[in-house]
Amino acid sequence: MNEWLYVGLFFIVGLIIPVGAIGVAWILGPKKPNPIKQSTYECGIEPVGEGWVQFKAQYYIFALVFLVFDVETVFLFPWAVRLGQLGMFAVVEGIVFILILVAGLVYTWRKGMLEWA
């Protein structure tokens, strides 16, 4: 059988198990809703305003910096697989690739975007 078909089947079973567990809880559990129980839960205190507040834009920049390095490592994996055969050339290429991305990180740092103020 195709490998990725098997992974897809694993995804399906992996979803069936929690759906089944929540389904059983839904069948067995009591269902007595009332307005106070259904209100937004904030540790027993009456919620003031919406929970969907604006969050700091800096969080978004953190995510962008993370994404750069996440993608970088994904690109490094094929490089790592063939590193043994390619030798010194590939090592230099890898270092150059990482340095280009580090330049971006240094730029972000110098701009003061990594300070949480």
């Binding site: 567990a21 307005p35 129980k37």
Partner: peptide, 27 residues
């Protein structure tokens, strides 16, 4: 105990995402 407890979704919550999150977490 968890099975026989009531499973509530708050009125203000995003119902689909609220119930999908634990399933994705386990998956």
């Amino acid at each position: 105990k968890l099975m026989i407890k009531e499973d509530t979704t708050p009125d203000g919550a995003d119902k689909v995402v609220y119930n999908l999150a634990p399933m994705l977490s386990m998956m």
